[in-house]
């Protein structure tokens, strides 16, 4: 059995500034040993430890989709020791990727269902992976209606703009893009917080409709009652959580909420499951 702490060596293939304020960059990695790409087989919603020898590791959701081959991609917010260092690295630099880790979104169970994706800020990465996966010609027919509600602080903070624009042109996905506020007179999408827009545009719930949500705590807190109002069952609301992690494999003991370890038992949970787990900041 291979050492689960050992990262696969990767080369940075490209670095793209992802937001106007440059606080987020998208890193595309290529595995140094081609066979490692097979070993890294992942599903949307999983994460990996980005491993920079000499600095440390950070758990980051996988932004690329399993349908995209030859690379793995992450969009990273610059905030601490490792991410600051990462933002200053250059194309061609060598580092490591360890994973895939955690449970994915249960897309196999969602086949035949209508899906509402609700995301905000830079938590859109694994949702981007999910959308790309579902829109893949081989997969699209296996899902029902797809709605996407995505909010950012202002137009400059929207991730994956080109893809959002392309998805807007399609008739097999309903895009609902919003910003908290903007003074741009040419802004042609929604203005307002995600919960408000969700209330306006999300389809009424039925047993066949599921919501997948990922975003900052405040957005989640205020969107949950909206989904309640629309009649979504808690079993049909799927969320992805995060916490400080080290090992990522359920051993080092710090990321638990109650008896569940976010890294290994999650990061994906249904709202029904979360109801039995403590809210850690009380």
């Amino acid at each position: 059995m291979q050492n689960p702490y050992k990262a696969y060596p990767v080369r940075i293939d490209s670095i793209d500034v992802a937001t106007e304020d440059k606080s987020l960059r998208t890193f595309t990695f290529v595995f140094l040993n081609p066979e490692d790409e097979q070993k890294f087989a992942y599903e949307s919603g999983q994460f990996a430890e980005l491993s920079i020898p000499g600095k440390g590791e950070i758990p980051i959701g996988i932004a690329s989709s399993p349908t995209e081959k030859g690379f793995v991609r992450f969009t990273v917010f610059r905030t601490g020791l490792v991410t600051n260092h990462l933002h200053n690295m250059k194309v061609g630099d060598i580092m490591g990727v360890r994973g895939p880790l955690g449970h994915p979104y249960p897309l196999k169970d969602l086949e035949g269902k209508n899906i509402v994706i609700i995301g905000a800020g830079f938590a859109f990465t694994t949702l981007r992976s999910t959308i790309v996966y579902m829109l893949n010609p081989e997969n699209r027919s296996r899902f029902g209606k797809i709605d996407v509600i995505y909010g950012a602080r202002n137009p400059g903070m929207i991730l994956y703009k080109d893809e959002l624009t392309a998805w807007e042109q399609r008739d097999d996905i309903n895009m609902h893009i919003t910003v908290d506020g903007t003074d741009d007179p040419s802004w042609k999408y929604h203005t307002g917080f995600v919960p408000t827009i969700t209330e306006k545009v999300a389809p009424q719930a039925d047993d066949n409709t599921y919501a997948i949500m990922c975003g900052p705590p405040m957005m989640l807190k205020f969107t949950k009652p909206v989904l309640d109002k629309l009649g979504y069952k808690h079993e049909n609301i799927i969320l992805s959580l995060e916490n400080r992690m080290k090992c990522g494999i359920g051993i080092c003991g710090r990321c638990n909420i109650g008896k569940e370890l976010i890294c290994k038992d999650g990061p994906v949970f249904t709202l029904a499951q979360l109801k039995h787990m403590p809210e850690e900041d009380t």
Partner: peptide, 14 residues
């Protein structure tokens, strides 16, 4: 059993 993981460098080796 809880543990932390840290990189320790000395010059170019770590």
């Amino acid at each position: 059993w809880c543990f932390d993981i840290q990189d320790e460098n000395k010059g170019c080796e770590g």
